[in-house]
Computed example of a mutant assay.
Amino acid sequence: MRCTVIGGAGFVGRRLAEALRRAGHEVWVPARGDRALFTRELGHVYYCAGLTADYAARPFDTVTAHVTLLADVLRAGRYSHLVYLSSTRLYDSSNLPVGDEGAALTLQPANPRALYDLSKGLGENLCLTVAAGRAAVARLSCVFDWEPESPGFLSEWLIRAATERAFRLDSDGGFVRDYIHLDDVVHALTAISTRKAEGIFNVASGENVSNAALAEAFNRQGWDISLTRASPEQRAAICSTTALRALDVAPRGVLEVVSTYLEGIKTWN
């Protein structure tokens, strides 16, 4: 299968490109600004380009990555199927009990944070309205891994755990997130693409886990993790995974993955 991974140098794109190559697919990772993106046949496109942590400091780059470049790829039309990576963060401002892909979103243009949400929402809209059934949206929850330089709060815990048995984290025990391991994300994205699925898919575990519960998982395995603040567990939308599971994709729970990883560290050491 011919595959193109746009943003293939990033956290998700790099692991995805590696997995596709191992599976025997022809994989092209275009360099930034490569105009061949609009003239050659792209096959199955994974649109992983985007900004997360630094979107506020780079607003114009954010819009270019989330919308402008995507629009150019869709306009050129030289793809068989495209998967656009979005985020379950779009549910954060909606106060919904369940993050359902079909639910209406609440976005506030005057909120500085809305730059991220609105640009991702516009990218989703383009895929769902102008791609003539050849695109799907993957809303990723909090992706984690333990390889060096993996971004994100939980990734930092896991990387530190390989060399430190005790540390204190400046965080609140009541803060919750839906976490999904990077390998499960890759599996979900390839399933969406190979089946040429349409619509929106939450690529998530479907379970919100608090920082306190994560710290307890570490402590049960022999680590000494403490948090600076403790508050009641916050309420946040639970991501529906019904659509994803209909593709026979069932991501593992974060506590299971973390416990297995920590068991491995104890064995290695």
Rank of each mutant, 00 (worst) to 15 (best):
Arg22His: 06
Ala19Met: 04
Glu26His: 13
Val27Asn: 12
Val29His: 02
Ala53Gln: 12
Leu51Trp: 01
Arg35Lys: 14
Pro30Lys: 12
His44Glu: 06
Ala19Gln: 08
Leu51Met: 03
Val27Trp: 08
Thr39Asn: 03
Ala19Leu: 05
Arg32Ser: 06
Ala53Tyr: 06
His44Asn: 08
Tyr46Ser: 00
Pro30Ala: 13
Tyr47Asn: 00
Thr52Cys: 12
Arg21Gln: 12
Leu20Gln: 07
Leu42Asn: 00
Leu42Met: 02
Glu26Trp: 03
His44Lys: 05
Leu20Asp: 07
Pro30Ser: 12
Glu26Cys: 10
Gly33Gln: 11
Arg35Gln: 14
Thr39Pro: 02
Leu37Ser: 12
Gly33Trp: 13
Leu51Cys: 01
Gly50Ile: 00
Leu51Asn: 00
Cys48Lys: 10
Ala36Lys: 14
Ala31Gly: 05
Ala36Ser: 15
Ala31Met: 02
Ala19Gly: 07
Leu42Gly: 00
Tyr46Phe: 15
Gly33Pro: 03
His25Leu: 13
Tyr47Ser: 00
Ala23Ser: 14
Gly24Tyr: 01
Arg35Gly: 12
Pro30Met: 07
Glu26Ala: 13
Thr39Ala: 04
Val27Met: 07
Ala23Ile: 03
Gly33Thr: 07
Gly24Pro: 02
Gly43Ile: 06
Leu51His: 00
Glu41His: 07
His44Thr: 04
Val45Arg: 01
Val27Lys: 09
Thr52Ala: 15
Val29Asp: 02
Asp34Cys: 14
Arg35Asp: 14
His25Trp: 12
Thr52Trp: 10
Leu51Val: 00
Arg22Cys: 08
Leu51Gln: 02
Phe38Glu: 13
Arg32Glu: 07
Ala36Leu: 15
Asp34Tyr: 13
Glu26Gly: 11
Arg32Trp: 11
Gly43Tyr: 09
Cys48Glu: 03
Val29Lys: 05
Val45Ile: 03
Glu26Val: 11
Asp34Ser: 15
Leu20Cys: 04
Gly43His: 08
Val29Tyr: 05
Gly33Leu: 09
Arg21Thr: 10
Val45Ser: 01
Val27Ile: 06
Glu41Lys: 10
Val45His: 01
Gly43Lys: 07
Leu37Trp: 08
Val29Glu: 11
Leu42Trp: 00
Gly24Met: 02
Gly50Thr: 00
Thr52Tyr: 11
Leu37Phe: 10
Val27His: 09
Glu26Phe: 09
Phe38His: 13
Asp34Asn: 15
Phe38Gly: 11
Asp34Lys: 15
